[in-house]
Computed example of a mutant assay.
Amino acid sequence: MRITKYEHAALRVDEAGRALLIDPGSFTTPFDDLADVVAVVITHEHPDHWTGSHLDRILRAAPGTPILSTAGVAAAASDYEITVVAPGDELTVGEFTLRFFGGSHAVIHESLPGIENLGVLVNDELYYPGDSYAVPEGVEVKTLAAPLGAPWLKIGEAMDFVLAVSPRRCFGTHDMTLSTIGRTMHRQRLQWATEQGGGTFFELDPAQSLDV
């Protein structure tokens, strides 16, 4: 399986000639090579995790591609056919078995309304928590995509999340709100946390891939 990181929170997962896209949002440049996409996962409704222009581009290249997300996204993206999934759900699309965890977006501030959020485990290999620190209980996470920066993120809490998951491999994502210096510093902190459990941290920049 090949995992490719794009700008901010967007990931592409390739397996046996098919592709899964996760969180193609407003900080992410347009994707190419979309004909082999079999599903899109959107973890929550914030625009840095999905846009209509991305969905239009995907659906033009791969008509009928299922879009899997929360009820909040289904309401916000009412022009699209959204398959609503929830924590505890499991389904298979093409080459991908998806298990969903979590339920709530991390708190930004008490003045802002809470929203739904999904963590997703792909093929029992890659876990991405969306905008949360939701630990997939009872799961041995082989590869973790861990958030690096966000209005809701405190680096100590992100380190504790990585320590709790204890993945074999980890890389940072959700990072477009950080300067180059900030990204480097936060990567170093998550590298330390990954290594405490015997794992390896990978520094992936946009369009770089990890084969697992």
Score class of each variant (00 low, 15 high):
207 A>G: 13
116 E>H: 10
201 F>C: 07
175 D>Y: 10
71 A>R: 14
151 P>Y: 05
97 T>C: 03
8 H>M: 01
181 I>Q: 15
38 V>N: 05
64 G>W: 02
9 A>G: 14
73 V>S: 02
211 D>Y: 04
17 G>P: 04
16 A>G: 05
93 V>W: 01
129 P>L: 01
195 E>F: 12
76 A>F: 02
172 G>W: 03
177 T>Y: 10
190 L>M: 09
7 E>H: 13
72 G>N: 07
150 A>R: 06
127 Y>M: 07
186 H>S: 15
70 T>M: 00
27 F>P: 12
120 V>Y: 03
54 H>P: 01
164 A>R: 11
178 L>G: 07
191 Q>N: 15
57 R>G: 09
67 I>V: 14
138 G>A: 05
9 A>C: 15
168 R>L: 11
56 D>F: 12
108 I>G: 03
64 G>K: 05
189 R>C: 14
126 L>E: 03
56 D>Y: 09
209 S>Y: 10
159 M>R: 15
13 V>P: 04
87 P>Q: 00
135 V>P: 06
211 D>K: 12
84 V>T: 01
54 H>S: 02
108 I>W: 04
45 E>M: 12
62 A>M: 07
176 M>S: 13
140 E>W: 10
51 T>N: 08
206 P>V: 13
146 A>K: 09
47 P>G: 09
133 Y>M: 11
208 Q>A: 06
190 L>N: 10
98 L>Y: 01
110 E>G: 09
7 E>R: 09
196 Q>P: 09
17 G>F: 01
150 A>T: 00
8 H>E: 03
166 S>T: 15
192 W>D: 13
101 F>E: 01
141 V>W: 08
139 V>L: 11
73 V>R: 02
139 V>F: 05
145 A>Q: 10
101 F>Y: 12
95 E>P: 11
149 G>H: 13
97 T>Y: 00
129 P>H: 04
167 P>Y: 00
40 V>R: 03
154 K>H: 14
93 V>K: 03
49 H>N: 08
173 T>A: 10
153 L>M: 04
45 E>T: 14
72 G>K: 07
44 H>I: 08
125 E>F: 13
151 P>F: 08
163 L>N: 12
152 W>P: 10
30 P>N: 02
52 G>I: 12
59 L>Q: 04
179 S>E: 02
203 E>F: 11
38 V>I: 01
132 S>R: 06
132 S>A: 10
21 L>E: 04
14 D>T: 04
84 V>E: 00
41 V>G: 08
7 E>K: 11
156 G>I: 11
186 H>N: 15
29 T>C: 05
80 Y>V: 06
116 E>I: 12
65 T>L: 01
34 L>D: 07
19 A>R: 13
76 A>S: 06
182 G>Y: 02
166 S>P: 09
25 G>A: 00
126 L>W: 01
106 A>C: 09
196 Q>D: 05
166 S>V: 09
158 A>Y: 04
118 L>A: 01
183 R>N: 12
95 E>S: 14
1 M>W: 02
78 S>M: 03
5 K>P: 06
191 Q>R: 15
152 W>M: 02
184 T>M: 09
106 A>P: 07
160 D>E: 14
